[in-house]
Design a protein around this nucleic acid. Structure first.
Lengths: 358, 358
DNA sequence: GCGTTGAGAAGGTACGTTTCTGCATGGCAA
DNA sequence: TTGCCATGCAGAAACGTACCTTCTCAACGC
């Protein structure tokens, strides 16, 4: 009976490699992980034998032993009945792509998890850390994770003094103020807002920034809210906004589809863009470069956010907390197109602020 | 010495629960997992103690013991230098969302992995199975996974006799043929194609279906190809297509952004849609419902594909191979809008084929 | 000749579960 | 009484790795 000989059921284990190479288990482990003091001859020999046997170390065993799984949770908040809904496809896709890429470069992989899900799923996967997107105030999942000593970095400033390890966010107030100034400079007299009924930080900050701006310049706020997770509601809300007696001559839409929603509504009311109505919306989609007219968009730079979030998180996991700031503000980017320019309708792309690149 | 007493370093383990509840480890395990023969009294007592101690079973240990991790890989093929590029954001986002949701409902989580990545990342995570999106012919990663006995289900028919466990796909040929017939019925005399230079199955099948259709009806093929992963190239290719001497009076664009690309190009050449040019593109994006004019799109039903892929995979993992077919064809959905109708430009949405729902 | 040093490699334990096997106990029929 | 089964639980062996400790052996200075 014995363990060294015997069952060929599963894949080759470290024991088999050791036996085949005529060395001990320790030597195999050291040789493959670049540790210990071994002559190069032994190292390469072991490596060769391992290759020949098709040996792959068991991730589970390694995780159990080392306590590190190399897995990072990517958590998105849920809106509807679906496990989760991406209000902004392009934003999430870009952000997730960058995060995946950054994690991979450092040897980590991302696990997609909805914030609200059965507890067994959460404890069924060993996470070294977690990225949460726009956590709600006092989010129980985040609290629990932190209590278990798992680093958590959030995309979006955490509300309610959530004890996160760090966060990355845009300066939403500044972005909205800058954008409203831009519209005012282009000749807007009354700027409207298309916003959401949800309570997430992004919506809240942007809306209050708008209200503050209105108060500062002495304009009555003109806005309509709708549940952002319902794609149809956007078109209806856009219509409502332009049907008001105090119809705005410029509109900023907080969500990705608002650009086309507003454009369609403007057409229905016979309003020409940008002549009768200036338009800006927050979006990462490239379709707004080729609409008629092209629409000015505010980019939140999801790529940079995704990268930054992961870097901070992995630094925290590996104990390099000080290599970069724990809280980072990523500048936004206003991509000015025809829809917000009353003068020269020829300009297509010109980022007015923020450092170059990406 | 002494393991039962001693270090309070980490979190509570099953041993601590057993000690606190005054029972054996076995009893705790059985009570928590609903196994063994225990009176309900013991069960609830153990559960309560475990709760009080904040006990969470170690995923790594469980995986090591059982051989099941509850993790499913979601692999996307890479195009550029980025780990991976989503040519179609909306498609991927929807598909991934549905897959995540379906996996979660059955107690699994999804791990995002690029198909081509350093080997250590792949072996660093214990996967019960993998979903691959549109694998290339003879994909080495897939081959290796299968060789290690890991079930693999692909989104898109696997080329080159890849030994996958199952696959889900649309009937791309039928979709293209149906769509071309639709355009012809709307009065198109010469239908052009905007296609890609990549060799993936989707592009290949769709293009050959187009060529076959042309041969059948006796029309000269009119098409332009471009590298689909480059968003700028699409606009250029659309322009090229409409600049040709044998300019088509209808165009089908294979990729998501082609709708706006073609619309913009049409405007540049003074072509009215749908009067001078009929337009259809393959897209999951809702923006095409509100463009001017609304554009007819072909939906590949990513939600249903994502769900089906995961179901098949998990069935295979759990050994229920026969509960549903191993190969599934999901019907596509042509969403007819103004851009492909020369007669009644009022109709907006009417799925012509496929069963109802979703 | 002897302690010292350091390289090279092996032994063995622990990581935290699941689960197989087995030991009591008690009721019931033979 | 004896045999037998069902019940309730405990012991201990894995799972495959990493790493701490120990061992051997040769070289070397004194």
């Amino acid at each position: 009976m014995g363990r060294s000989t015997g069952r060929r059921l599963g894949r080759a284990g470290i024991r088999d490699v050791a036996a085949a190479a005529g060395v001990s288990i320790t030597t195999v482990s050291d040789a493959l992980n670049g540790k210990g003091r071994l002559p190069d001859a032994t190292r390469s020999h072991v490596r060769e034998v391992a290759d020949r046997l098709g040996y792959r170390p068991s991730a589970a065993a390694r995780t159990l032993r080392t306590g590190k799984s190399g897995l990072i949770g990517l958590t998105v908040t849920t809106y509807g009945d679906e496990p989760f809904t991406f209000t902004e496809f392009a934003y999430f896709a870009e952000m997730a792509r960058a995060a995946t890429s950054a994690a991979l470069a450092r040897g980590y992989a991302l696990v997609i998890l909805p914030a609200t899900s059965r507890h067994d799923v959460w404890s069924n996967v060993a996470l070294d850390g977690t990225v949460v997107i726009d956590p709600a105030d006092g989010d129980p999942v985040v609290t629990e994770l932190v209590r278990h000593g798992i680093p958590v970095v959030s995309d979006g400033r955490p509300g309610g003094s959530l004890p996160v390890t760090g966060w990355v966010d845009n300066d939403h107030e500044a972005a909205v103020l800058g954008l409203l100034d831009h519209l005012a400079e282009a000749g807007a007299r009354r700027i409207g807002l298309l916003t959401g009924t949800t309570t997430d930080t992004y919506t809240r900050l942007s809306t209050t920034a708008y209200l503050n701006w209105c108060e500062r310049v002495g304009q009555d706020p003109v806005y309509e809210s709708y549940p952002a997770y319902d794609p149809r509601a956007g078109a209806v809300a856009a219509d409502r906004l332009l049907a008001r007696p105090d119809r705005p001559d410029a509109v900023y839409g907080l969500f990705d589809p608002n650009g086309t929603d507003l454009l369609a509504a403007a057409r229905r009311y016979g309003l020409r863009v940008p002549d009768d109505l200036l338009l800006v919306c927050c979006s990462e989609s490239t379709v707004y470069a080729t609409t008629d007219p092209p629409i000015t968009t505010l980019s939140l730079k999801p790529r940079r956010i995704g990268t930054a979030v992961v870097q901070i998180l992995i630094d925290a996991i590996e104990g390099l907390d000080d290599s970069c700031p724990i809280e980072q503000v990523i500048p936004t980017d206003l991509i000015v197109r025809t829809s917000s320019q009353r003068r020269s309708p020829r300009t297509t792309v010109s980022p007015p602020r923020g450092p170059a690149g990406d």
